[in-house]
Design a protein around this nucleic acid. Structure first.
Length: 577
DNA sequence: GCCGTTTTCGGCCCGACTGTTTTCAGTCG
Protein backbone atom coordinates (compact mmCIF):
# COMPACT_ATOMS: atom_id res chain seq x y z
CA UNK A 1 0.00 0.00 0.00
CA UNK A 2 2.38 2.60 -1.28
CA UNK A 3 -0.13 5.43 -1.03
CA UNK A 4 -0.69 4.78 2.69
CA UNK A 5 3.02 4.80 3.36
CA UNK A 6 3.45 8.04 1.43
CA UNK A 7 0.70 9.79 3.35
CA UNK A 8 1.84 8.35 6.68
CA UNK A 9 5.34 9.65 5.99
CA UNK A 10 4.03 13.09 5.11
CA UNK A 11 1.89 13.33 8.24
CA UNK A 12 4.77 12.09 10.33
CA UNK A 13 7.12 14.69 8.83
CA UNK A 14 4.47 17.35 9.39
CA UNK A 15 4.42 16.32 13.05
CA UNK A 16 8.21 16.69 13.16
CA UNK A 17 8.00 20.16 11.64
CA UNK A 18 5.32 21.19 14.11
CA UNK A 19 7.55 19.97 16.93
CA UNK A 20 10.48 22.04 15.75
CA UNK A 21 8.13 25.00 15.54
CA UNK A 22 6.92 24.24 19.07
CA UNK A 23 3.37 24.16 17.84
CA UNK A 24 0.41 22.79 19.81
CA UNK A 25 1.52 19.40 21.21
CA UNK A 26 -1.93 17.93 20.73
CA UNK A 27 -1.94 18.84 17.10
CA UNK A 28 1.41 17.10 16.80
CA UNK A 29 -0.02 14.01 18.45
CA UNK A 30 -3.00 14.12 16.10
CA UNK A 31 -0.69 13.99 13.06
CA UNK A 32 1.38 11.17 14.56
CA UNK A 33 -1.68 9.12 15.45
CA UNK A 34 -3.15 9.63 12.01
CA UNK A 35 0.15 8.58 10.40
CA UNK A 36 0.33 5.43 12.47
CA UNK A 37 -3.25 4.40 11.84
CA UNK A 38 -3.00 5.00 8.10
CA UNK A 39 0.14 2.90 7.91
CA UNK A 40 -1.60 -0.01 9.64
CA UNK A 41 -4.57 0.04 7.30
CA UNK A 42 -5.21 -3.01 5.14
CA UNK A 43 -6.82 -0.99 2.35
CA UNK A 44 -5.36 1.85 0.35
CA UNK A 45 -6.81 5.19 1.43
CA UNK A 46 -7.41 5.85 -2.26
CA UNK A 47 -10.03 3.10 -2.21
CA UNK A 48 -11.98 4.62 0.66
CA UNK A 49 -14.97 6.94 0.57
CA UNK A 50 -15.01 10.14 2.61
CA UNK A 51 -17.21 8.38 5.18
CA UNK A 52 -14.80 5.46 5.43
CA UNK A 53 -11.86 7.84 5.87
CA UNK A 54 -13.64 9.49 8.77
CA UNK A 55 -14.12 6.10 10.40
CA UNK A 56 -10.35 5.69 10.73
CA UNK A 57 -9.50 6.55 14.33
CA UNK A 58 -7.75 9.91 14.51
CA UNK A 59 -8.91 11.08 11.09
CA UNK A 60 -11.29 14.02 11.18
CA UNK A 61 -12.57 16.44 8.56
CA UNK A 62 -9.25 18.27 8.18
CA UNK A 63 -7.03 15.24 7.72
CA UNK A 64 -9.59 13.51 5.51
CA UNK A 65 -9.53 16.54 3.22
CA UNK A 66 -5.71 16.48 3.18
CA UNK A 67 -5.72 12.79 2.28
CA UNK A 68 -8.15 13.44 -0.55
CA UNK A 69 -6.07 16.35 -1.80
CA UNK A 70 -2.98 14.18 -1.90
CA UNK A 71 -4.80 11.37 -3.71
CA UNK A 72 -6.15 13.76 -6.32
CA UNK A 73 -3.15 16.02 -6.88
CA UNK A 74 -0.20 13.93 -5.74
CA UNK A 75 0.92 16.64 -3.35
CA UNK A 76 -0.23 18.52 -0.28
CA UNK A 77 -0.17 22.32 -0.18
CA UNK A 78 -0.11 22.48 3.61
CA UNK A 79 2.92 20.19 3.66
CA UNK A 80 4.79 22.13 0.96
CA UNK A 81 4.14 25.36 2.82
CA UNK A 82 5.30 23.88 6.11
CA UNK A 83 8.49 22.53 4.58
CA UNK A 84 9.37 26.08 3.58
CA UNK A 85 9.08 27.24 7.17
CA UNK A 86 11.60 24.88 8.70
CA UNK A 87 15.03 24.02 7.32
CA UNK A 88 16.02 20.45 6.59
CA UNK A 89 18.76 20.25 9.24
CA UNK A 90 16.82 20.15 12.49
CA UNK A 91 14.41 17.60 10.97
CA UNK A 92 17.32 15.27 10.25
CA UNK A 93 18.59 15.67 13.81
CA UNK A 94 15.33 14.36 15.28
CA UNK A 95 16.35 10.86 14.24
CA UNK A 96 19.23 10.99 16.72
CA UNK A 97 18.17 9.31 19.99
CA UNK A 98 18.17 11.72 22.90
CA UNK A 99 18.04 14.69 20.61
CA UNK A 100 14.62 16.27 20.53
CA UNK A 101 13.02 19.22 18.79
CA UNK A 102 14.27 21.89 21.23
CA UNK A 103 17.89 20.89 20.96
CA UNK A 104 17.64 20.26 17.22
CA UNK A 105 16.43 23.76 16.66
CA UNK A 106 19.00 25.24 19.01
CA UNK A 107 21.84 23.44 17.26
CA UNK A 108 20.72 24.75 13.91
CA UNK A 109 20.16 28.31 15.05
CA UNK A 110 23.34 28.64 17.10
CA UNK A 111 25.81 26.63 15.05
CA UNK A 112 24.17 26.71 11.61
CA UNK A 113 24.79 23.00 11.15
CA UNK A 114 22.44 21.42 8.64
CA UNK A 115 23.57 17.83 8.16
CA UNK A 116 24.49 14.92 10.43
CA UNK A 117 28.06 15.20 9.17
CA UNK A 118 28.30 18.86 10.15
CA UNK A 119 26.74 18.09 13.51
CA UNK A 120 29.23 15.30 14.07
CA UNK A 121 32.10 17.59 13.13
CA UNK A 122 30.86 20.30 15.50
CA UNK A 123 30.52 17.80 18.34
CA UNK A 124 34.03 16.48 17.77
CA UNK A 125 35.38 20.02 17.88
CA UNK A 126 33.47 20.58 21.14
CA UNK A 127 31.56 23.46 19.64
CA UNK A 128 28.28 22.12 21.06
CA UNK A 129 29.32 22.93 24.62
CA UNK A 130 29.12 26.61 23.80
CA UNK A 131 25.34 26.27 23.74
CA UNK A 132 23.62 26.81 27.10
CA UNK A 133 22.25 23.54 28.47
CA UNK A 134 24.66 21.36 26.52
CA UNK A 135 27.83 20.06 28.14
CA UNK A 136 30.51 17.51 27.50
CA UNK A 137 28.26 14.56 28.27
CA UNK A 138 25.58 15.69 25.84
CA UNK A 139 28.21 16.07 23.14
CA UNK A 140 29.27 12.48 23.72
CA UNK A 141 25.68 11.27 23.66
CA UNK A 142 24.97 13.07 20.42
CA UNK A 143 28.01 11.44 18.81
CA UNK A 144 26.85 8.07 20.05
CA UNK A 145 23.36 8.83 18.75
CA UNK A 146 24.67 9.74 15.30
CA UNK A 147 26.46 6.41 15.25
CA UNK A 148 23.19 4.65 16.11
CA UNK A 149 21.43 6.40 13.24
CA UNK A 150 24.20 5.40 10.85
CA UNK A 151 24.03 1.77 11.87
CA UNK A 152 20.36 2.15 10.97
CA UNK A 153 18.87 -0.41 13.28
CA UNK A 154 15.49 -1.04 11.71
CA UNK A 155 12.58 -2.78 13.34
CA UNK A 156 13.43 -6.43 13.85
CA UNK A 157 11.14 -9.34 13.04
CA UNK A 158 9.15 -10.78 15.94
CA UNK A 159 10.60 -14.22 15.34
CA UNK A 160 14.12 -12.97 15.93
CA UNK A 161 13.44 -10.79 18.96
CA UNK A 162 11.07 -12.98 20.96
CA UNK A 163 13.62 -15.78 21.58
CA UNK A 164 16.20 -13.19 22.67
CA UNK A 165 13.71 -11.64 25.07
CA UNK A 166 12.74 -15.02 26.50
CA UNK A 167 16.43 -15.76 27.00
CA UNK A 168 16.94 -12.52 28.91
CA UNK A 169 13.93 -13.22 31.11
CA UNK A 170 15.22 -16.71 31.90
CA UNK A 171 18.66 -15.37 32.76
CA UNK A 172 17.31 -12.61 34.99
CA UNK A 173 15.12 -15.10 36.81
CA UNK A 174 18.19 -17.19 37.47
CA UNK A 175 20.52 -14.42 38.58
CA UNK A 176 18.35 -11.89 40.38
CA UNK A 177 15.84 -12.22 43.16
CA UNK A 178 12.77 -11.60 41.05
CA UNK A 179 9.18 -11.98 42.16
CA UNK A 180 7.49 -11.40 38.83
CA UNK A 181 8.81 -10.55 35.40
CA UNK A 182 7.01 -10.19 32.07
CA UNK A 183 7.74 -9.07 28.56
CA UNK A 184 5.76 -5.91 27.78
CA UNK A 185 5.66 -3.48 24.87
CA UNK A 186 4.97 -4.24 21.23
CA UNK A 187 6.64 -7.62 21.72
CA UNK A 188 3.88 -8.64 24.14
CA UNK A 189 1.34 -7.31 21.68
CA UNK A 190 3.12 -9.55 19.14
CA UNK A 191 3.58 -6.94 16.49
CA UNK A 192 5.23 -8.51 13.46
CA UNK A 193 8.29 -6.33 13.93
CA UNK A 194 9.54 -4.64 17.09
CA UNK A 195 12.01 -1.88 17.83
CA UNK A 196 13.09 -2.88 21.31
CA UNK A 197 12.41 -5.20 24.22
CA UNK A 198 10.43 -3.90 27.20
CA UNK A 199 10.57 -5.84 30.45
CA UNK A 200 8.73 -5.16 33.69
CA UNK A 201 9.59 -6.82 36.97
CA UNK A 202 9.24 -6.72 40.72
CA UNK A 203 12.21 -7.48 42.93
CA UNK A 204 13.11 -7.70 46.59
CA UNK A 205 16.06 -5.43 45.99
CA UNK A 206 15.60 -3.22 42.93
CA UNK A 207 19.15 -1.87 43.08
CA UNK A 208 20.69 -5.32 42.96
CA UNK A 209 18.29 -6.31 40.23
CA UNK A 210 19.28 -3.33 38.10
CA UNK A 211 22.98 -3.93 38.65
CA UNK A 212 22.46 -7.53 37.57
CA UNK A 213 20.57 -6.37 34.49
CA UNK A 214 23.11 -3.83 33.24
CA UNK A 215 25.97 -6.28 33.80
CA UNK A 216 24.47 -9.20 31.86
CA UNK A 217 27.09 -10.61 29.46
CA UNK A 218 24.95 -9.87 26.39
CA UNK A 219 24.79 -6.16 27.27
CA UNK A 220 26.97 -3.98 25.07
CA UNK A 221 26.15 -0.47 26.22
CA UNK A 222 24.30 1.02 29.18
CA UNK A 223 22.20 4.01 28.21
CA UNK A 224 20.44 4.56 31.49
CA UNK A 225 20.86 3.02 34.91
CA UNK A 226 18.37 3.96 37.64
CA UNK A 227 16.69 2.13 40.49
CA UNK A 228 13.33 1.80 38.78
CA UNK A 229 14.31 2.10 35.16
CA UNK A 230 17.34 1.06 33.15
CA UNK A 231 18.04 0.85 29.48
CA UNK A 232 20.76 -1.03 27.62
CA UNK A 233 21.82 -1.91 24.10
CA UNK A 234 22.62 -5.58 23.58
CA UNK A 235 25.84 -6.49 21.77
CA UNK A 236 23.82 -7.53 18.75
CA UNK A 237 22.12 -4.14 18.63
CA UNK A 238 18.72 -4.49 20.27
CA UNK A 239 17.66 -2.00 22.91
CA UNK A 240 16.21 -3.39 26.14
CA UNK A 241 14.32 -1.41 28.78
CA UNK A 242 13.69 -2.79 32.23
CA UNK A 243 11.28 -1.24 34.72
CA UNK A 244 11.16 -2.40 38.31
CA UNK A 245 8.02 -1.61 40.31
CA UNK A 246 6.56 -2.61 43.68
CA UNK A 247 4.56 -5.85 43.61
CA UNK A 248 1.29 -4.01 44.24
CA UNK A 249 1.93 -2.01 41.06
CA UNK A 250 2.95 -4.87 38.78
CA UNK A 251 -0.31 -5.07 36.84
CA UNK A 252 -0.58 -1.34 36.34
CA UNK A 253 3.03 -1.17 35.17
CA UNK A 254 2.57 -4.12 32.84
CA UNK A 255 -0.52 -2.50 31.36
CA UNK A 256 1.23 0.84 30.96
CA UNK A 257 4.36 -0.65 29.41
CA UNK A 258 2.46 -2.96 27.10
CA UNK A 259 0.71 -0.04 25.42
CA UNK A 260 0.09 0.69 22.72
CA UNK A 261 0.46 4.36 23.35
CA UNK A 262 -2.91 4.91 21.71
CA UNK A 263 -4.53 2.28 23.90
CA UNK A 264 -3.00 3.82 27.05
CA UNK A 265 -4.27 7.24 26.15
CA UNK A 266 -7.76 5.84 25.74
CA UNK A 267 -7.61 4.13 29.14
CA UNK A 268 -6.28 7.21 30.90
CA UNK A 269 -8.87 9.33 29.20
CA UNK A 270 -11.58 7.03 30.54
CA UNK A 271 -9.99 7.19 33.98
CA UNK A 272 -9.93 10.98 34.04
CA UNK A 273 -13.57 11.16 33.00
CA UNK A 274 -14.49 8.78 35.81
CA UNK A 275 -12.66 10.86 38.43
CA UNK A 276 -9.74 8.44 38.50
CA UNK A 277 -6.03 8.65 37.91
CA UNK A 278 -4.18 5.90 36.06
CA UNK A 279 -0.42 5.57 36.03
CA UNK A 280 2.14 2.77 36.14
CA UNK A 281 1.68 2.44 39.89
CA UNK A 282 -2.02 1.76 39.96
CA UNK A 283 -5.45 3.18 39.45
CA UNK A 284 -6.40 5.80 42.03
CA UNK A 285 -9.46 7.80 43.05
CA UNK A 286 -8.75 11.45 42.27
CA UNK A 287 -10.58 12.82 45.34
CA UNK A 288 -8.61 11.08 48.10
CA UNK A 289 -5.86 9.29 46.12
CA UNK A 290 -7.13 5.93 47.34
CA UNK A 291 -5.60 3.05 45.37
CA UNK A 292 -8.35 0.95 43.77
CA UNK A 293 -6.05 -1.67 42.26
CA UNK A 294 -2.88 -2.32 40.32
CA UNK A 295 -1.32 -5.63 41.30
CA UNK A 296 -2.99 -7.35 38.36
CA UNK A 297 -3.67 -5.98 34.91
CA UNK A 298 -7.27 -7.09 35.30
CA UNK A 299 -7.63 -4.58 38.18
CA UNK A 300 -7.05 -1.68 35.85
CA UNK A 301 -9.68 -2.82 33.38
CA UNK A 302 -12.14 -3.81 36.09
CA UNK A 303 -12.02 -0.41 37.80
CA UNK A 304 -12.59 1.24 34.43
CA UNK A 305 -15.62 -0.99 33.94
CA UNK A 306 -14.01 -2.98 31.13
CA UNK A 307 -13.37 -6.67 30.60
CA UNK A 308 -9.73 -7.72 30.22
CA UNK A 309 -8.47 -6.78 26.77
CA UNK A 310 -5.88 -9.21 25.37
CA UNK A 311 -2.54 -7.53 24.58
CA UNK A 312 -2.74 -8.38 20.88
CA UNK A 313 -5.82 -6.17 20.53
CA UNK A 314 -4.40 -3.10 22.29
CA UNK A 315 -3.80 -0.93 19.26
CA UNK A 316 -6.64 1.56 19.64
CA UNK A 317 -8.29 -0.01 16.63
CA UNK A 318 -11.72 -0.42 18.14
CA UNK A 319 -10.91 -2.72 21.07
CA UNK A 320 -11.99 -0.23 23.74
CA UNK A 321 -15.31 0.33 21.99
CA UNK A 322 -15.80 -3.42 21.59
CA UNK A 323 -14.97 -3.95 25.26
CA UNK A 324 -17.49 -1.31 26.29
CA UNK A 325 -20.14 -2.94 24.15
CA UNK A 326 -19.30 -6.41 25.48
CA UNK A 327 -18.29 -7.43 21.96
CA UNK A 328 -14.65 -8.39 22.39
CA UNK A 329 -13.82 -11.48 20.32
CA UNK A 330 -12.97 -14.75 22.04
CA UNK A 331 -9.57 -14.91 20.44
CA UNK A 332 -8.23 -18.13 19.03
CA UNK A 333 -5.48 -19.87 21.02
CA UNK A 334 -2.73 -22.26 20.00
CA UNK A 335 -4.64 -25.06 21.73
CA UNK A 336 -7.53 -24.56 19.29
CA UNK A 337 -5.36 -25.69 16.37
CA UNK A 338 -6.18 -29.33 15.55
CA UNK A 339 -3.76 -29.90 12.72
CA UNK A 340 -1.34 -28.35 10.27
CA UNK A 341 -2.33 -28.12 6.62
CA UNK A 342 1.06 -27.17 5.18
CA UNK A 343 3.86 -29.71 5.71
CA UNK A 344 6.83 -30.77 3.60
CA UNK A 345 8.53 -34.16 3.79
CA UNK A 346 11.89 -35.31 2.45
CA UNK A 347 10.10 -36.17 -0.77
CA UNK A 348 10.37 -32.49 -1.73
CA UNK A 349 12.39 -29.93 0.26
CA UNK A 350 11.57 -31.12 3.78
CA UNK A 351 13.80 -33.17 6.03
CA UNK A 352 11.61 -35.85 7.59
CA UNK A 353 9.67 -38.95 6.63
CA UNK A 354 5.88 -39.04 6.75
CA UNK A 355 5.97 -41.07 9.91
CA UNK A 356 8.36 -38.67 11.64
CA UNK A 357 6.11 -35.77 10.69
CA UNK A 358 3.09 -37.65 12.04
CA UNK A 359 4.82 -38.40 15.33
CA UNK A 360 5.97 -34.78 15.67
CA UNK A 361 2.46 -33.50 15.05
CA UNK A 362 0.90 -36.04 17.38
CA UNK A 363 3.33 -35.06 20.13
CA UNK A 364 1.97 -31.54 19.79
CA UNK A 365 -1.59 -32.68 20.28
CA UNK A 366 -2.65 -32.54 16.64
CA UNK A 367 -5.20 -34.91 15.17
CA UNK A 368 -4.06 -34.55 11.57
CA UNK A 369 -1.66 -32.93 9.16
CA UNK A 370 -1.81 -32.44 5.45
CA UNK A 371 1.27 -33.50 3.59
CA UNK A 372 1.78 -30.79 0.98
CA UNK A 373 5.03 -31.37 -0.84
CA UNK A 374 5.84 -29.08 -3.74
CA UNK A 375 4.56 -29.77 -7.24
CA UNK A 376 6.92 -30.63 -10.09
CA UNK A 377 7.10 -27.10 -11.46
CA UNK A 378 9.18 -26.13 -8.48
CA UNK A 379 12.32 -27.93 -9.54
CA UNK A 380 14.55 -26.28 -6.93
CA UNK A 381 12.40 -27.81 -4.20
CA UNK A 382 12.35 -31.29 -5.81
CA UNK A 383 8.72 -30.93 -6.69
CA UNK A 384 6.80 -34.15 -7.23
CA UNK A 385 5.91 -35.50 -10.64
CA UNK A 386 2.37 -36.81 -11.01
CA UNK A 387 3.74 -40.34 -10.77
CA UNK A 388 5.59 -39.58 -7.52
CA UNK A 389 2.53 -37.83 -6.11
CA UNK A 390 0.37 -40.90 -6.76
CA UNK A 391 3.05 -43.08 -5.22
CA UNK A 392 3.02 -40.80 -2.19
CA UNK A 393 -0.73 -41.18 -1.97
CA UNK A 394 -0.43 -44.99 -1.86
CA UNK A 395 2.25 -44.87 0.82
CA UNK A 396 0.15 -42.52 2.91
CA UNK A 397 -2.86 -44.82 2.67
CA UNK A 398 -0.75 -47.66 3.99
CA UNK A 399 0.71 -45.53 6.77
CA UNK A 400 -2.69 -44.12 7.77
CA UNK A 401 -4.03 -47.61 8.34
CA UNK A 402 -1.26 -48.11 10.91
CA UNK A 403 -1.55 -44.75 12.68
CA UNK A 404 -3.86 -44.63 15.67
CA UNK A 405 -5.97 -41.52 16.25
CA UNK A 406 -4.04 -39.59 13.67
CA UNK A 407 -4.43 -38.97 9.97
CA UNK A 408 -2.10 -37.66 7.29
CA UNK A 409 -4.14 -36.03 4.56
CA UNK A 410 -2.74 -36.30 1.09
CA UNK A 411 -2.17 -32.90 -0.41
CA UNK A 412 0.11 -30.68 -2.41
CA UNK A 413 1.52 -27.21 -2.34
CA UNK A 414 0.87 -26.65 -6.00
CA UNK A 415 2.77 -23.99 -7.86
CA UNK A 416 0.76 -21.35 -9.68
CA UNK A 417 2.84 -21.01 -12.83
CA UNK A 418 3.93 -17.65 -14.23
CA UNK A 419 1.34 -17.92 -17.00
CA UNK A 420 -1.43 -18.50 -14.47
CA UNK A 421 -1.90 -22.17 -15.21
CA UNK A 422 -1.71 -24.77 -12.45
CA UNK A 423 0.98 -27.35 -12.04
CA UNK A 424 -1.32 -30.40 -11.92
CA UNK A 425 -4.46 -31.12 -13.99
CA UNK A 426 -7.86 -31.44 -12.30
CA UNK A 427 -7.82 -35.25 -12.74
CA UNK A 428 -4.84 -35.33 -10.38
CA UNK A 429 -6.13 -32.71 -7.94
CA UNK A 430 -9.37 -34.66 -7.63
CA UNK A 431 -7.38 -37.50 -6.07
CA UNK A 432 -6.06 -35.32 -3.23
CA UNK A 433 -7.61 -34.40 0.13
CA UNK A 434 -6.14 -30.89 0.29
CA UNK A 435 -4.77 -28.61 -2.40
CA UNK A 436 -2.95 -25.47 -1.38
CA UNK A 437 -1.75 -23.26 -4.17
CA UNK A 438 0.88 -20.58 -4.08
CA UNK A 439 3.17 -18.36 -6.08
CA UNK A 440 6.90 -19.05 -6.15
CA UNK A 441 7.97 -17.24 -9.28
CA UNK A 442 7.35 -14.14 -11.35
CA UNK A 443 7.35 -11.90 -8.29
CA UNK A 444 7.98 -8.85 -10.41
CA UNK A 445 5.07 -9.31 -12.74
CA UNK A 446 2.63 -6.43 -12.99
CA UNK A 447 -0.17 -6.29 -10.45
CA UNK A 448 -2.90 -7.34 -12.87
CA UNK A 449 -0.97 -10.42 -13.94
CA UNK A 450 -0.17 -11.67 -10.44
CA UNK A 451 -3.72 -10.99 -9.31
CA UNK A 452 -5.05 -12.93 -12.29
CA UNK A 453 -2.82 -15.89 -11.41
CA UNK A 454 -4.13 -16.10 -7.86
CA UNK A 455 -7.72 -15.52 -8.95
CA UNK A 456 -7.45 -18.31 -11.53
CA UNK A 457 -6.14 -20.68 -8.87
CA UNK A 458 -9.00 -19.79 -6.54
CA UNK A 459 -11.53 -20.42 -9.28
CA UNK A 460 -10.30 -24.00 -9.54
CA UNK A 461 -12.79 -26.09 -7.51
CA UNK A 462 -10.02 -28.27 -6.06
CA UNK A 463 -7.89 -25.45 -4.62
CA UNK A 464 -8.74 -25.24 -0.91
CA UNK A 465 -6.18 -22.74 0.37
CA UNK A 466 -3.94 -20.03 -1.04
CA UNK A 467 -0.64 -20.23 0.84
CA UNK A 468 1.35 -17.13 1.86
CA UNK A 469 -0.93 -14.96 -0.30
CA UNK A 470 1.25 -11.84 -0.57
CA UNK A 471 4.65 -13.51 -0.87
CA UNK A 472 6.48 -11.14 1.44
CA UNK A 473 9.53 -11.91 3.55
CA UNK A 474 9.70 -9.42 6.39
CA UNK A 475 12.77 -7.24 6.07
CA UNK A 476 14.01 -9.17 3.03
CA UNK A 477 11.47 -9.09 0.23
CA UNK A 478 8.42 -6.93 -0.28
CA UNK A 479 5.07 -8.47 -1.11
CA UNK A 480 4.51 -8.83 -4.83
CA UNK A 481 2.13 -6.33 -6.36
CA UNK A 482 -1.29 -7.86 -5.95
CA UNK A 483 -4.81 -6.49 -5.83
CA UNK A 484 -5.80 -7.83 -2.43
CA UNK A 485 -9.32 -6.42 -2.76
CA UNK A 486 -9.84 -8.68 -5.72
CA UNK A 487 -8.17 -11.64 -4.03
CA UNK A 488 -10.40 -11.25 -0.97
CA UNK A 489 -13.51 -10.81 -3.09
CA UNK A 490 -12.85 -13.97 -5.10
CA UNK A 491 -11.81 -15.90 -1.99
CA UNK A 492 -15.20 -15.15 -0.50
CA UNK A 493 -17.05 -15.86 -3.72
CA UNK A 494 -15.34 -19.22 -4.31
CA UNK A 495 -15.09 -20.33 -0.69
CA UNK A 496 -11.28 -20.53 -0.85
CA UNK A 497 -9.40 -20.24 2.43
CA UNK A 498 -6.39 -17.96 2.82
CA UNK A 499 -3.34 -18.93 4.80
CA UNK A 500 -1.70 -17.22 7.71
CA UNK A 501 1.77 -18.67 7.25
CA UNK A 502 3.53 -18.90 10.62
CA UNK A 503 7.08 -18.90 9.31
CA UNK A 504 8.44 -15.95 11.31
CA UNK A 505 9.70 -14.03 8.28
CA UNK A 506 6.46 -14.55 6.35
CA UNK A 507 3.54 -14.00 8.74
CA UNK A 508 1.54 -13.84 5.57
CA UNK A 509 -1.31 -12.83 5.60
CA UNK A 510 -0.56 -10.00 7.98
CA UNK A 511 -2.80 -9.09 10.91
CA UNK A 512 -4.74 -6.36 9.13
CA UNK A 513 -5.45 -8.50 6.06
CA UNK A 514 -6.43 -11.39 8.29
CA UNK A 515 -8.89 -9.14 10.10
CA UNK A 516 -10.37 -7.99 6.84
CA UNK A 517 -10.67 -11.53 5.50
CA UNK A 518 -12.38 -12.58 8.73
CA UNK A 519 -14.76 -9.63 8.48
CA UNK A 520 -15.70 -10.82 5.01
CA UNK A 521 -16.40 -14.34 6.24
CA UNK A 522 -13.38 -15.92 4.56
CA UNK A 523 -11.86 -18.96 6.27
CA UNK A 524 -8.22 -18.60 7.35
CA UNK A 525 -5.81 -21.51 7.75
CA UNK A 526 -2.95 -21.06 10.22
CA UNK A 527 -0.07 -23.23 9.03
CA UNK A 528 3.55 -23.61 10.01
CA UNK A 529 4.91 -24.59 6.56
CA UNK A 530 7.00 -27.27 8.26
CA UNK A 531 10.23 -28.36 6.60
CA UNK A 532 11.78 -29.53 9.87
CA UNK A 533 9.69 -30.95 12.71
CA UNK A 534 10.77 -28.28 15.19
CA UNK A 535 9.01 -25.74 12.95
CA UNK A 536 5.67 -27.09 14.17
CA UNK A 537 6.41 -24.95 17.21
CA UNK A 538 6.34 -21.74 15.20
CA UNK A 539 2.55 -22.06 14.92
CA UNK A 540 2.20 -19.65 17.85
CA UNK A 541 3.50 -16.85 15.62
CA UNK A 542 0.67 -17.46 13.19
CA UNK A 543 -1.81 -17.67 16.04
CA UNK A 544 -0.49 -14.34 17.35
CA UNK A 545 -1.09 -12.73 13.98
CA UNK A 546 -4.57 -14.25 13.94
CA UNK A 547 -5.25 -12.87 17.40
CA UNK A 548 -4.06 -9.44 16.27
CA UNK A 549 -6.53 -9.85 13.43
CA UNK A 550 -9.38 -10.44 15.93
CA UNK A 551 -9.84 -14.05 14.78
CA UNK A 552 -11.83 -16.56 16.78
CA UNK A 553 -11.62 -20.34 16.65
CA UNK A 554 -14.57 -20.47 14.27
CA UNK A 555 -12.73 -18.34 11.69
CA UNK A 556 -9.90 -20.80 11.29
CA UNK A 557 -10.16 -23.88 9.06
CA UNK A 558 -7.68 -26.06 10.92
CA UNK A 559 -9.43 -25.73 14.26
CA UNK A 560 -12.02 -28.12 12.84
CA UNK A 561 -11.94 -31.77 13.83
CA UNK A 562 -11.10 -34.05 10.92
CA UNK A 563 -14.67 -35.03 9.89
CA UNK A 564 -15.79 -31.39 9.86
CA UNK A 565 -12.61 -30.41 8.02
CA UNK A 566 -13.27 -33.00 5.32
CA UNK A 567 -16.83 -31.77 5.00
CA UNK A 568 -15.67 -28.16 4.70
CA UNK A 569 -13.06 -29.06 2.09
CA UNK A 570 -15.75 -30.91 0.13
CA UNK A 571 -18.08 -27.89 -0.02
CA UNK A 572 -16.12 -26.00 -2.63
CA UNK A 573 -15.62 -29.08 -4.80
CA UNK A 574 -19.33 -29.83 -4.89
CA UNK A 575 -20.15 -26.19 -5.56
CA UNK A 576 -17.58 -26.03 -8.34
CA UNK A 577 -18.88 -28.99 -10.30
C1' DG B 1 -5.87 18.31 14.74
C1' DC B 2 -9.49 15.15 17.08
C1' DC B 3 -13.47 14.39 19.72
C1' DG B 4 -18.12 14.25 22.52
C1' DT B 5 -24.65 10.27 27.44
C1' DT B 6 -20.89 15.42 31.73
C1' DT B 7 -18.51 19.00 26.32
C1' DT B 8 -19.65 21.21 19.22
C1' DC B 9 -15.59 24.35 22.85
C1' DG B 10 -12.19 23.07 25.69
C1' DG B 11 -10.17 19.55 26.83
C1' DC B 12 -6.32 16.36 25.22
C1' DC B 13 -1.69 10.63 29.92
C1' DC B 14 1.88 10.75 33.11
C1' DG B 15 6.23 9.80 35.32
C1' DA B 16 11.52 8.52 35.20
C1' DC B 17 16.12 9.63 33.98
C1' DT B 18 19.81 12.69 32.39
C1' DG B 19 22.58 16.58 32.27
C1' DT B 20 23.46 20.83 33.58
C1' DT B 21 21.24 22.49 36.50
C1' DT B 22 21.29 26.02 42.10
C1' DT B 23 15.38 24.15 40.85
C1' DC B 24 14.50 22.32 36.12
C1' DA B 25 13.98 21.53 31.01
C1' DG B 26 14.33 18.15 27.56
C1' DT B 27 13.54 13.62 26.03
C1' DC B 28 11.52 9.29 26.11
C1' DG B 29 8.28 5.59 26.50
Amino acid sequence: MVINQEIARIFSTMADILEIKEDNPFKIRAYRRAAQNIEGLSRGVDELSREELLEIPGIGAELAAKIEEYIQTGSLRAFEKMKGEVPEGPLTFLAVPGLGPKTARLLYEQLHVTTLEELEQAAKEHRLASIPGIGEKSEENILKGIDTVRRGKERQPLGRVLPIALGLVAELRKKASIERIEIAGSLRRRRETVKDIDLVATANDPEVMMRTFVSLPQVGDVIMHGTTRSSVILREGLKVDLRVVPLESFGAALSYLTGSKGHNIRLRDMAVKAGLKLNEYGIFRESDNACLGGEEEEDVYRVLGLPFIPPELREDLGEVEAALAGKLPHLITTEDIRGDLHCHSHWSDGVHTFEELARGAQARGYAYIALTDHSHGLGVAHGLSIGRLMEQKRELAALNSRLKGFTILCGTEMDIRTDGSLDYPDEVLRELDVVIASIHSGFRQPKAQITARIVAAMRNPYVSVIAHPTGRLIGERDAYEVDMDEVLRVARETGTALEINSYPLRLDLSDSYARRAMDMGIFLAINSDVHVISQFDTIHYGVSIARRGWLEKRDVLNTLELPQLRKQLGLKRRKGR
